[in-house]
């Protein structure tokens, strides 16, 4: 169980870290100053979650790796995030649809983690994160509605974003030996158990946004076992450059 647990927490931490890294790329490129601030703020929350989760993952692993060792000295094959969060930002529509799809999932996952009593440290991190992701979820849902029900152009663009991103969503609900072990330990229900509520909530947002929920059943997956898109390795090369160039330096 200990191995599985560490692996499970890494998945949570990597989802947060990789998405934070992507969102921070928006800094000074946002569509309006207010939204620039909002995206940085969401990135900052996710980064805070990632730091707490990676620290805990490192402690559970017991090999003396801290948050930075895990963030800066793992290769792409060792990252455990879902593919959805590593995709390039694209335009603001792509970014905000990705965010909505992820936020709706993150709320459900943190709700479950915050209410279990098997792993209290994880429950405490989740309780704090839950407050943050609820705001993120409200923010991204509002934007999807505004863009979907805004102008013809925004409707067209954001529908395309949705069609492009949809095949990456099924990965969030997959289960494997790790998630099954966590479920048996009582830390977290199976990922599949979130599917119905997630689908219901996402459909409600898309309906209000006058967008069509894609019918695609394509499934792009691999992130949880370290088989990523071509994009992650570039992201890590940029993120890790100083630590890798000057190993052992304190910053």
């Amino acid at each position: 169980m200990a191995d599985q647990e560490h692996e499970w927490i890494l998945r949570l931490g990597d989802d947060a870290l990789v998405l934070a890294q992507r969102l921070s790329e928006w800094c000074s490129h946002g569509p309006a100053l207010e939204e620039d601030i909002a995206l940085s703020n969401i990135a900052l929350d996710l980064l805070g979650q990632a730091r707490a989760l990676l620290t805990l993952a490192g402690q559970r692993e017991g090999l003396g790796r801290d948050e930075d060792a895990l963030a800066y000295f793992r290769t792409d094959r060792e990252f455990r995030n879902a593919l959805l969060v590593e995709l390039p930002n694209g335009d603001f529509g792509d970014t905000i649809v990705r965010q909505m799809l992820f936020d709706q999932f993150a709320v459900l996952r943190y709700e479950a983690l915050a209410s279990q009593t098997v792993d209290l440290e994880l429950a405490a991190i989740a309780a704090k994160a839950l407050k943050e992701v609820r705001y993120h979820a409200a923010h991204s849902a509002q934007w999807v509605v505004r863009l979907g029900d805004g102008t013809e152009e925004s409707h067209r663009r954001v529908q395309e974003s949705l069609n492009m991103l949809w095949p990456y969503t099924a990965e969030l609900f997959e289960d494997d030996a790790v998630s099954k072990a966590c479920n048996e330990a009582g830390v977290l229900p199976l990922n599949a158990s979130f599917t119905a509520r997630w689908t219901e909530q996402v459909r409600a947002i898309l309906e209000e946004a006058t967008l069509t929920c894609p019918e695609s059943t394509a499934l792009l997956t691999g992130g949880r076992s370290g088989r990523h898109t071509e994009h992650l390795s570039y992201m890590l090369a940029e993120m890790q450059v100083l630590q890798r160039t000057y190993p052992g330096a304190e910053w």
Binding site: H29, G30, P31, A32, E35, D91, F92, G93, V145, R146, L147, D149, G150, T151, E153, S154, R157
Partner: peptide, 13 residues
């Protein structure tokens, strides 16, 4: 300029 369609959409909505 890249944000123009977003601001227009927000205003239209």
């Amino acid at each position: 300029e890249n944000g123009a369609w977003v601001r227009d959409a927000a205003a239209a909505y």
